[in-house]
Structures are given as C-alpha cells and as structure tokens.
Design a protein around this nucleic acid. Structure first.
Lengths: 338, 338
DNA sequence: CTGAAAGCGCTTACAG
DNA sequence: CTGAAAGCGCTTACAG
C-alpha cells in the first residue's frame, strides 16, 4: 500500500521500522552498525531500507549527535590554482574516510571568512581546514571552544590550539632571491603579498633578509595575491626603478599579472627583466617564457592537513602540531640569461 | 552569573530568553524578523544576543523548517579553471542574497556525484546547481521529488523539471572548425570530450557537422576533459595522421595537454599544427603561442544560474527554463599562419 | 537483543 | 503582542 510514493514526503525511519516490523530504535542501530541486533531483524531492516529507498535525514542525526560526518575547507580564493589543487587533494582524502568535504570561498575577505566559519560552527561540522584571510578571526576561537578541530593551511592562525600545515615561506623567497643574485642580478624587486597574511609577511622577510645580507636595497610593492594587483604592483616597480633587472613575485596569480605588466612596457623576459615566482601552477611551463618557480608539495600538504584533522577527530592526539614543508626551486627560462 | 563561559557549552535560545526576560518563542520571532514583537522586548532580546554572543544552531532551525539558507554547487572538477571561475561568480551572487554556497567536487565520477547529491538532499539545502558527471543520476530525481530546486550548469540533465544554463556547444565547435577551414586547413582533428556529457557530445557533433558539409573526413580521439587525457588523445591523433595540420580541442585542460603533446613531438604551433580550443582560461594569452579560443561568458552564466535558482526558491516561477549562451571566437597566434 | 521514552535546539500554529 | 506546547527526524541511555 502506497508503494509508489509520488508525494514530496520523504521516507522516514518510522516507515522503515513499520515495514520491517521493528522499532525505530532497532532500525537506527542497524544503520549505525551497532553490534547487538539479531540477524533476522537486521536482514528485514536492510531490505526495507532498500525497498523504500530510505536515506536518514542528516540534519536530525547531526542535531542529535552534535556532530556530522562532514569537514569543511575554507580557502581565500578558489580561482587560485594553488588552492584549487589543495582542495582537490583534500577532497579525495576526506572522501576516502567516508566523510564529505564542504568548500567555502572567503574571497580574501575577513567578514566573509567569519560568516562562513560561524555557519560551519552552527552546523556542527567535525573539523575545518582554513587558509585564513584573517588569522585572528574570533570565529576560529569559537570553533575551538566548541571542540571543532581546526587546521590552519598555507597560512597560520593566531589561536595556538589549532594545528597548522605551512610551507617554509621565509626560505622560499630566500632561495628565489639568492638564485637571482647568483645569476648576477642586483636590482631585484619584490611583488609582495599582503602583510595581513603570514605568507605575505614571511615571503617579504625572506627576500629582505637576503637582499640586506648582500648589501642590496630592497624594492617592494604590494598586492593582494590577485592577478590585477600583481600587474599594478609590477608596473609601479618597473616604472619607478628603470634599472630593475629582476623580479621576485610572491604567488602565481600575481606572476601572471607581472607577465602582463612587463609585456605592456615592452620589456623582454629574461633579457630586460628576469622573473621568479612562488607557486608552481600547471601553466608555468607553457607560458612564454617558461617560468622559474619555487614549488611547494601542495597535494602532500593538503593530505597532511586532512591527516592531522582526523587524528584529532578520532581522538588520537590532543596537543597541537605544526607541519612545515620545504619549497623546491624549478629553474626555467624566465630567470636565465641568453 | 556564569558570564564568562569557559565550557564548550554553546549558548542556546533559552539562555537568551532568560537573560532578556522573555520566552524562547519571542527570541525566535525577533531573530527571524517577524513583525509583532513589542519594541521594548525586541531591544532586550537583541542586546542579550550580543552580550552572550548567541548564534542559532542551524541544524535545529533547518530541521524544524525543513529548509536551510544554503545552496550547493556540484562541479565535476574544481581544478578546471572554467569551473573555478563559475564557482567564484556563483558564490558572490549567492552570498549577496544572504545565503551560503556549499561546494562539492564530484571528480567526474558518477558515484561521487550521487553521494554528494544525496548528502545535500539529506541536509535540506534550498537548491543545487550541478555540472553533472552523470546527467541521469537518480539522485537528481530524488532532489526534485523532495522539492529541492535543481539547475543544470554547463551540461544538461535528463530530468525535465530542472532548469538549465548551458553554452551553445554545437555552435562552439562549428565556429572553431570553420575558422580553421577558412584558414586553409583540411586535415583537422578533434580532441573530443567524453560522450557521457552533453558538452562532449555537442562539441563533437558541431565539429563533425562542419567537416561533413565541407566534404572533409573527421578524425577524432577522446579524452575525459583532463590534461593528461588531452595529451594522450593528441598524441594518438598526430601519430596516426601525419598530415594533420590543425587541432580543435574540446576544453582548456585538454588544450594544455595537447600543447604538451605537440612539444613532445617537436611540432611547431601554428606552423606544423594550428590549435583552437574551447574555453578561455586566463593563461590562454600567456602561453607560447597565445591560444585561439572559443570563449563563453562563464561568469554571466554562473550568475544566471543563481538567478534561475532563486526565482524558484522564492516561488516566482514554476515552469522550468533553459538558458543558452553563445560562444565567442578569440583569434590569437595559435591558429594563424606566419 | 529490543522497545518506549526522552531529548538534540530550534520554530510555529494555537490560545489568550 | 506573547507564552506553553507540540513537533522536526533522528539517537541513545534505560529498562527489560
């Protein structure tokens, strides 16, 4: 009776219970893999589930359990291939554990980040991986107060209870700058990221460190890790320093912008201005000329973040951890003479 | 008393009610903007909310209301810049309406898509925008049965109740192929997308249509819209047809793969093989040589999908609609002689 | 091994 | 204008 359900009414646990001739409690036990259910009852429940096409309402389950089998990742710019790659790798790792990954794009905006983090807290996700636009966000504290695990990714956060997976950003621009100095350059500019982020600050510090030690004068312009901002910063740099012979760029999107800027000014790469960028987007080897990059093991970093998160979710660790990964220099035509 | 809360206990509506000296019902009314609450009571509720830092539990609210102020977008590959751009634009539009966008990556996998869609149905999202890996997915029917609105994006779905926003894919490869024929080419191959998707099928059909009308023989190899698959398909094409003088590629990632393949074989672009690709990734103008593309207005398409979704959510429309957008040919060096 | 009952934290007729 | 009560659809001690 009422086998074929044309109403928008969803099948509920009590419908399954009725059909299987058991109570809702028993259906719940079977579905949650609790041990002690007689196998005859178990069979009947399982086939009733299939017959009716029952899917538990996750809202109700999560509300009752105060936890959901969902983790979230909040990135500052999903259009940045660097984060897109991280998201892909994280999603795979999360999915393999039977969890779902929800993704939020904070758009380099502190208020958007806060809104999303509070929404996630209010939805009782089991954990969140966040590449923070605002490292001191009060919503991060709120998550941790609520025992929702937090892993800072790519950039650290202020709260020491959070785990972190980051690259060795200081070293990244040290290597880049040293590579250019070794190539004979001395008038080297930096297209820097924003000082609000640890990646921005550390990459600036690494560059300044090497420049100072070499007795060279730093020349820095800032952008917000976006393409057009990188273009503007590069234009300011070449326009104000006609002798500039090399550029370090703090991330891949701003490198694309710098490429645009140099072309607009008719400057040859690497003849007039050599270029090294942090990040290793897949198009680095296809552009003209192929770009020298400072690559980080982004997929490994993403799966490591997921590992850290699940160590916490599964209660295998309680003290916080920080993992740091080294960058690797990939030399291509954009930084080589001739 | 107990002003400073160090327990992981979340503030609840009854805490706010107590502090404001009203019932939970009144707090709820204030927070949901219901009209009839005396302004004195309203004030007290609002300041209690601020004092306690109260945030409603969205699970409970959504369970009760059987709807959440969340919409989801399911894409087949978040690493594809085409989708990343769409996601960004959709997220902005959704956020502006006071909703949240949840993003899921189905990884071109029918089973992953189904899992995510069922999770979303079980979480009572208000609507979903899906770029389907599997257009006939039973989970799509389930969503619609449950009165959750569905907009097919980029690719159509089987269920006629869903809205759709798609590009004129037939025309895309017609234009691309015609452009190459006009340039004097006759041995033109296609790196096609998979036949499981409407974008794959339509782009193949557009190419074949023009080739046949011109009395030319189609040469097609298939890939799954991924970079390495595009590389393999392009290799098969050039290796089996030594006279091939031009290539149409069905999407941007496979174009990157084709670029790799042609370099591996030492073939000059456009001298030995000319190249035109569907999609307009931001790196198209930076690669060597800059790529001739068939661009679609992806951001406009994404915001249109959001518009369609909210027309449904807000009950302003009940019959399904399909929007089709035209592509535009951007001629660059990869398809030009000399 | 299993069921009846309470409860997760909200919202919304209902009654006043 | 406002409160008491029921209920959203699950899960989980508790008792048997």
């Amino acid at each position: 009776l009422r086998e074929i359900d044309h109403t928008p009414q969803r099948i509920q646990i009590r419908d399954v219970a009725k059909r299987a001739g058991v109570s809702a409690a028993t259906v719940s036990r079977v579905l949650n893999g609790r041990a002690e259910v007689r196998s005859a009852a178990r069979e009947r429940v399982l086939s009733a589930v299939v017959d009716l096409g029952y899917r538990p309402n996750r809202l109700a389950r999560s509300l009752r359990r105060k936890a959901s089998e969902t983790v979230a990742m909040v990135v500052s710019d999903i259009e940045n291939p660097h984060f897109a790659e991280a998201v892909r790798a994280a999603e795979d790792a999360v999915y393999q554990r039977g969890y779902r990954l929800l993704l939020c794009n904070s758009d380099e905006s502190a208020s958007k980040q806060q809104t999303y983090l509070e929404t996630l807290a209010a939805e009782c996700v089991s954990g969140v991986i966040v590449a923070p636009s605002d490292p001191a966000d009060s919503a991060i504290k709120r998550l941790l107060d609520q025992s929702i695990h937090v892993v800072a990714f790519d950039r650290t956060v202020a709260d020491p209870r959070a785990d972190a997976v980051i690259g060795n950003n200081l070293d990244a621009t040290r290597v880049a700058t040293t590579h250019l100095i070794d190539g004979g350059h001395s008038a080297i500019g930096l297209v820097s990221g924003p000082l609000e982020t640890t990646t921005g600050r550390d990459r600036l510090a690494g560059y300044e460190d090497v420049m100072r030690r070499a007795g060279l004068e730093p020349r820095v312009e800032f952008g917000g890790f976006r393409m057009d901002e990188g273009e503007q910063a590069a234009l300011r740099l070449v326009d104000s320093s006609p002798r500039l012979s090399a550029l370090v760029v703090a991330n891949n999107l701003m490198a694309a912008g710098a490429l645009k800027a140099l072309r607009a000014r008719g400057l040859e790469i690497p003849g007039d201005v050599a270029l090294v960028t942090v990040d290793e987007p897949f198009w680095a080897e296809f552009v003209d000329p192929p770009l020298t990059t400072i690559a980080q093991p982004i997929r490994l970093m993403a799966t490591s973040a997921v590992d850290l998160l699940f160590e916490r979710i599964e209660g295998r660790r309680s003290e916080s951890r920080r993992l740091t990964f080294d960058f690797e220099l990939h030399i291509r035509a954009s930084s080589q003479h001739g």
